[in-house]
């Protein structure tokens, strides 16, 4: 009898622990200091892109963004400029559109390709159709930046999470350029002083469960 109770209790605890861990990973995503997983997502040109494709990169500016959110649009030019400034220094931009197309038709692959062409994107613009990568990272809104430092092959440490700078409306009014400051620190072998800053954005359009 005692044994049965022990076994049952043991099982319940195991199940509970597994469950808690599973939901934890889903809800919270990455914190600064965690290692981010690589992905294989389709680009607007039909090819698949992974972080592993960039053998000479020192890190990545992964940005969850979209065609439709006014905040994402306000930051679009600044995202293009981040890539122009930092891709050659080893930190390219990888843009990921997480929005469910049935909820937001203007975020379809075709519309993404149009937008990228019109604006002259110099970086991949990927779709996370399953939304698994978005959930693994813990992105909740567009735009939402994850700055990764490549410590070794397949070791991508999250160094900064959050906003691009402190002025969504006007690029020229920005007093603090969080992402640029963090990359500059990494490039000079230092730890970023600011590792997370929150900003307003549009909720990711999740698929119906």
């Amino acid at each position: 009898m005692k044994k049965t109770i022990l076994v049952i209790t043991g099982l319940l605890v195991t199940v509970a622990v597994l469950f808690v861990n599973a939901t934890d990973a889903n809800v919270n995503g990455y914190d600064v200091g965690d290692y981010a997983k690589d992905f294989s997502l389709k680009n607007i040109d039909g090819k698949t892109v992974s972080l592993a494709d960039y053998s000479s990169a020192k890190g990545f500016i992964v940005i969850f963004t979209c065609n439709t959110c006014p905040y994402a649009k306000a930051y679009e030019q600044r995202i293009i400029e981040l890539d122009k400034k930092y891709a050659s220094k080893g930190f390219p931009v990888i843009a990921i559109n997480p929005n469910d197309v049935s909820k937001q038709p203007d975020d379809s692959m075709e519309k993404m390709a149009e937008r990228a062409k019109d604006k002259g994107y110099t970086f991949p613009y990927l779709r996370d159709d399953s939304q698994e990568i978005t959930k693994a990272y813990g992105a909740t809104k567009t735009p939402h930046v994850y700055l990764l430092n490549k410590e070794a092959s397949d070791k991508y440490k999250v160094e900064y999470i959050g906003a691009i700078d402190d002025s969504p409306r006007e690029a020229s009014d920005a007093k603090e350029k969080y992402v640029e400051d963090a990359i500059d620190a990494l490039l000079s072998g230092k730890k970023p002083a600011v590792t997370s800053k929150r900003a307003i954005g549009c909720t990711i359009k999740w698929k119906d469960a």
Binding site: T140, K141, P168, K197, A199, G201, C202
Partner: peptide, 21 residues
């Protein structure tokens, strides 16, 4: 206020800044 990083956690630590909230 446009000092987002100041007020967002004051409203709720759980808020990443996405709206609606």
């Amino acid at each position: 206020s446009t000092n987002y990083d100041d007020y967002i956690p004051k409203i709720s630590e759980a808020w990443s800044g996405a709206i609606p909230a």
